[in-house]
Design a binder for these strands. Structure first.
Lengths: 199, 199
DNA sequence: TGAAAATGCGAGCGACCGCTCGTATTGTTC
DNA sequence: GAACAATACGAGCGGTCGCTCGCATTTTCA
């Protein structure tokens, strides 16, 4: 079902995803109309549909690109060093800072991944990264809190991811000089919870 | 600008708010159309607009009713007893349990309050709820952590409310037998953060 | 009892949505 | 350069949305 793409077409697709990320960030998924996305990309509505069969497909492709970008930029920082022995503050710095930076650098990201009411195909696209993040967090938990039962570990991982997702918009919305303080609070929440788990 | 209402009109307004709460809970704010709300209330679209000038006004009135209901049901538990001297676990029980119960008993509530990404129109309508919650939490913080600077206190209140908002859907989505465990995790997060603030 | 006010109706307006289609242009292949 | 695929256009389709308006019915009150 794949059609032959020209180099120009590949470029167009990237431009469309850029425009979609912009529009999603500024307007949210629902209010970012396909015509508006096309206009931001400097093309006609019809041209958008030369490359993506639906609005959902655009979002899905954008989600895929976010996943790839995140893996490329920060994937290694997640699970490589000796998590078990590291100072808790340092561990939090190593995990939280790159993720916060990615969220700030990609404002459209949260519109696609931090939503409770997502279109089904969109939820499907975001499942890999959700699962990956949960898995990484679970492996960290496994190293830091060895006595945890699997069900409790899974639940705690969900809690940690959820707290991060909830706090990130607070960080992004804060004026720039307030951000370090907001990030510190995010880490404080996570640290308090992790400390409580170890006790 | 107020018009004279008959008793029937007051009843209708309550029915419309009931229908709106239903529709918001089931469909979310955006997809709950005013015609659908009117249909659920058993009236015509025109009749709905006899009582509310816009969809946002319906949401705003519903938010107001939620605040009143919450105050009536659990308001006393929030700020009356000696918050300062109370055991932290007991304080959390007294604050969290009624709020969780209210959320579970009023499924439409989370569409107005516990939604991480709030459209601007909705944000305005739900501000009374947010303001009420922040104020209560700030007064508790004032009693429990007296050394906190006003700006830090406000920030911490935002963090606590945000965490609660983020965790509540997790509680609501969990199967009934899992809920106590999820609530316990919610309290654990809040306790860890509060403990960290006092240190 | 009769006029005025409040309540009730529902077809439909104007705006916008995701998306299509006929057609024109550009690029590739031989 | 001819044949064909890929790219580009934009008016407009079918549909939904929040909301209106002309008009019928019920209630209030003098």
């Amino acid at each position: 079902m794949e059609r032959r793409r020209q180099a120009r077409g590949e470029r167009r697709m990237a431009e469309i995803l850029d425009a979609a990320a912009d529009a999603f960030a500024e307007l949210g998924y629902e209010k970012a109309s396909t015509n508006a996305i096309a206009a931001r990309a400097g093309i006609s509505p019809g041209s958008l549909y030369q490359f993506f069969p639906s609005k959902e497909a655009v979002a899905s492709a954008l989600a895929g690109r976010f996943v790839a970008d995140m893996r490329a930029a920060h994937g290694s920082a997640f699970g490589e060093a000796d998590v078990a022995g590291m100072d808790l503050d340092e561990l939090l710095d190593r995990v939280v800072d790159p993720l916060v930076a990615f969220n700030l650098a990609n404002p459209g990201f949260k519109a696609l991944f931090a939503r409770p009411d997502m279109p089904s195909a969109l939820a499907e696209s975001s499942r890999p990264i959700q699962a990956a993040m949960l898995g990484q967090v679970e492996s960290i938990l496994d190293a830091r809190v060895p006595g945890l039962a699997p069900a409790d570990r899974a639940r705690s991982a969900r809690v940690l991811v959820r707290v991060f997702q909830a706090m990130t918009p607070l960080v992004a919305a804060a004026p720039e000089e307030e951000r370090p303080a907001e990030v510190a609070e995010l880490k404080r929440v996570l640290k308090g919870y992790l400390t409580s788990l170890s006790a």
